[in-house]
Design a protein around this nucleic acid. Structure first.
Lengths: 177, 177
DNA sequence: GGAAATCTACTCGGATACCGCGTGTCCGAGTTATGGTGG
DNA sequence: CCACCATAACTCGGACACGCGGTATCCGAGTAGATTTCC
């Protein structure tokens, strides 16, 4: 298990597919099927992205999710914090205050301010977060687009259109009984 | 639970206490008692530090651990990797290869090279590791020493000496039967 | 022919099990220093 | 007085349970669209 979870990975991949599809919402089921991952799991991720203001949900038979902001304004860090909940790199246990030499009531110099070890971790965490914040969804999408051949996007668009059409024209068919 | 574990925290705190005590080894029990943490847990950590070449173990009744290198040559990153085992920040599941549009045998352009999302994570991980590698045990110890009053170190030395004396003069007393 | 009601299938959203890693504890093997014993 | 030996307590080192967070799944509430029916 790594610090950045699989949920974040799925979320980022989904968001990349959603770029350019701001008009026609994509459902969590479509996104899951497209990538060959568990639909239930993907469905669990998106409510978090919606609460964070990264995507906007629309309900109903032709509903789904749409990016709530332009891709350049969504950073990887935003997605990570939205899904994993801003969990810290390091959880200081305040060991310094438990030293037997300090007694039950440690003096101020021992517990005031930030623990020196914690400070190192905070600096490292800041570097990490800055690196993640500097990369937007658009940046990542551009890197992906540089590799895929142009024809692939036509194939993708055709797949989306086919799925969109399959969602209409079926309801209220001949009554079972 | 955070990415950097409590084991690392305990290990770093112990190593800080060991600086300057290169002659008289400190046992894992002493280090635990000094800080008011579980002796069993501390004892579980040190074998990893020894295998990584950070500390040197000596056995027997007056045994214990000693820093294997000068404090300025031990970085926080060394300790983290030694205890937590160089676990990555992000574990890429290669989602890109599972896209249904690519079929069972994805073309080379889709799976060659590093996944774009993975690349972002690797850059962030590199930044984090560099920040951790730039801080040595000596640096952290200096930050701690700047806060503690000089008298405190005398108290600490006295405590160590008392513990060292308590370890001798007891074995082989009058036979029970 | 037009408009309202109904019905279906789809959507989101949260609540519920399973599993693996980290935390915490314990016990066994080996070694060193001590104290006594014999020469 | 010196060298040897047995003893005991301490050390390290790895193997064994408990609990929490992440992964994966399922089911219920609500909504938009299409069909059907009635005027």
């Amino acid at each position: 298990m790594a610090h950045i979870t699989v949920s974040v990975e799925y979320g980022l991949h989904c968001l990349l597919w959603m770029i350019g599809s701001e008009i026609r919402p994509m459902s969590s089921r479509e996104l899951a099927e497209l990538q060959g991952v568990s639909p239930s799991f993907v469905a669990k991720i998106f409510p978090k992205l919606e609460k964070a203001g990264i995507v906007r949900a629309s309900e109903g038979v032709r509903g789904g999710y749409v990016l709530a902001k332009p891709a350049p304004e969504i950073s990887c860090l935003d997605v990570i914090d939205a899904i994993d909940g801003k969990k810290p790199l390091f959880d200081c246990q305040e060991v310094r205050g438990g030293c037997v030499l300090l007694g039950k009531k440690p003096p101020g110099w021992a517990i005031n301010g930030t623990c020196a070890i914690h400070a190192v971790m905070l600096r490292a965490e800041k570097s990490m977060r800055e690196a993640l914040a500097s990369q937007s969804l658009a940046d990542v999408a551009e890197a992906v687009g540089r590799k895929a051949p142009p024809e692939f996007w036509n194939t993708f668009q055709a797949w989306v259109d086919k799925k969109a059409e399959a969602r209409i024209g079926k309801p209220a068919r001949a009554r079972p009984a």
